[in-house]
């Protein structure tokens, strides 16, 4: 871990303006903001960890808990909302057995995250599977995509056996 963090630190000068940029890099390196990583950087920069916590919890982009291997992003923009995104999200949470109030399945396989708007409103409703944008989503298309995702997992298991 330290090596990776050194790498991140070397990209930034030690000034406060880069605090968000550092967190963004930590997030993309580890998938979420590891607590030990934050303590490490805090000590290194002599900035209290509370400051990092304050910034990290302010912005929607940062996550304090590990996230699933597959990330499914559901757009909750106005256009998607009026075109039925709520039902799609409920069926996602249901199909992927994500506990109530959580966004990640217990086996850390899937994360379903809601975002305000991905700006692809003319093809609403929009669901993003691991960074690939799928527009004009329907419950049927959604089921197919989930099947593919789950199928990929099975295949991997078979391959490793």
């Amino acid at each position: 871990m330290e090596e990776k963090l050194e790498g991140i630190m070397s990209r930034y000068q030690e000034n406060e303006g880069n605090l968000i940029s550092i967190l963004q890099d930590v997030e993309s390196e580890f998938g979420y903001l590891r607590e030990d990583a934050i303590y490490w950087i805090s000590e290194r920069l002599d900035v209290p960890p509370a400051k990092f916590y304050g910034v990290a919890t302010f912005y929607a982009q940062f996550h304090l808990k590990p996230r699933g291997k597959d990330v499914i992003t559901a757009c909750c923009g106005t256009a998607c909302h009026v075109k039925g995104s709520e039902r799609l999200i409920n069926s996602l949470l249901n199909e992927l057995s994500i506990p109530k109030g959580e966004d990640t399945s217990e086996d850390l396989r899937f994360t379903v995250e809601k975002v305000n708007c991905v700006g692809a409103c003319s093809i609403a409703p929009v669901i993003i599977f691991n960074k690939t944008v799928h527009g004009k989503m329907t419950p049927d298309k959604l089921k197919k995509e989930i099947k593919t995702l789950k199928g990929g997992e099975q295949q991997q298991v078979e391959n490793s056996e």
């Binding site: 406060e16 303006g17 605090l19 967190l23 910034v55 912005y59 929607a60 982009q61 940062f62 305000n116």
Partner: peptide, 19 residues
């Protein structure tokens, strides 16, 4: 980093400053 309020000028500035 994902905050609607950062459309407000002074909030946007705070965000660029890393706060």
């Amino acid at each position: 980093a994902g905050a609607f309020v950062c459309g407000e000028e002074t909030a946007l500035i705070a965000s660029i400053e890393g706060k």
